[in-house]
Amino acid sequence: MNLLDLSFKRTSYEAKVLSSIWYECALGAAVLTYPKLHGSLDKPAEYYAQLRQRASSRLEAELEFCQEHNTWKMLLQLLHSLNCETIESFAMETHALSREEFRFLVLPYLETALEPARRRAAEGDTAGAEEMMDACRRHRFFPQLIHDVMTTDADTLRDHLIALLQLWDAEFMEREREITAAVLKRDAEEKEAWLRTLSPEEAVLRATGVEYAPEPGVQQVLLIPHIIYRPFTVEASLPQTKVFYYPVSDTSLPGLRDPYEPPSRLVQIYKALGDEKRLRALKLIAGKDRTLKELTDALGLGKTTVHHHLAVLRAAGLIRVKGGSYAWNPQSLHHHERELNEFLTGSHDQ
């Protein structure tokens, strides 16, 4: 078949950093109401158990409702839509929404083609809700979330989300608000500096650990730093937007780590460069894109050994998989010298 391709294919996306303590509050509610994850987070499981024990009876009631219905996801969607600076403005704008518009904003965004069904569901159409639930039936909790939005009184749900944010802020965030905001701001500024010199794909990879390639319909990637969910990156979708709530870097947490412990990213890149075979492989790839077979033949090593070396180089961001070949990423070395200097000349406590 002969094909004349006149289509436009998106080659990149815009990346933007957005920092707010309100996202931290919503993610905090997500973490606290998902105990299966507690043993895998930066802080020990006991920390989250103690945090839950500190909750007032009012907040505990809201957390139980959140745990049953995954309303933290609804809260995140509202925060993105309303973009409020204060809890007072969030409460006011949330109350000002019609029941239909409120339901539309808290129903999960699935894809552009399903936005009409989302709108119909928000207006009370059960067929629209069923279309959404059928489309995401393999998702861990979206079908139940859609059902809950449809069957729970909108005003009850609205009051719950406002109370959850207000009580979390008052009981857990108030004493740490300034420190938390400063850490999030410091990390956001670091990522904004990356975006001035790196490609969006490289900045997203370094911030999140996710190699996110451009995809149809996605024009923007939002990078939102968090502390509470470290070391996990949480991925979400909004219209024409991919969202990554990513863990702040070690360097954004002064005083909370050993100053003599090097940042993991710095260790990764020097470990990758500190091996003769990996440097030879990198030199070959820097000359032109190479397949695994080409590298195996050129290096005179076994396939498994070469694959291991390539995995180390990929983890450090030095190379990328491009089609069926490995390609050099020259931007990967832009910041390592500065990061090494910052580590060596930073504050010393001993």
Rank of each mutant, 00 (worst) to 15 (best):
G287L: 13
N70W: 10
R99Q: 15
R230S: 10
K73Q: 13
R206K: 15
R338P: 10
H80D: 11
L79W: 04
T151P: 06
E130I: 02
R140H: 06
L78V: 05
G346A: 00
A203K: 10
A26G: 02
Y13M: 02
F104Y: 14
A213R: 15
R314T: 11
S249Y: 09
R206E: 12
H348P: 00
V149G: 06
Q53T: 09
Y13D: 11
L273P: 07
N2Q: 11
S19A: 15
R119W: 14
L32M: 08
A181E: 15
S332D: 09
A91V: 09
P116T: 04
L318A: 00
W328P: 07
S264T: 13
V106S: 02
F102E: 03
T197I: 15
Y326P: 02
I319L: 08
S199A: 01
V31P: 01
N83R: 13
T33D: 08
L164Q: 07
D125I: 04
L78I: 03
E88C: 03
R54G: 15
R103C: 10
A122W: 01
L165H: 07
E190V: 13
E342S: 13
Q67Y: 05
I21T: 12
L59W: 08
A170I: 14
P239M: 06
H307A: 14
Q166T: 13
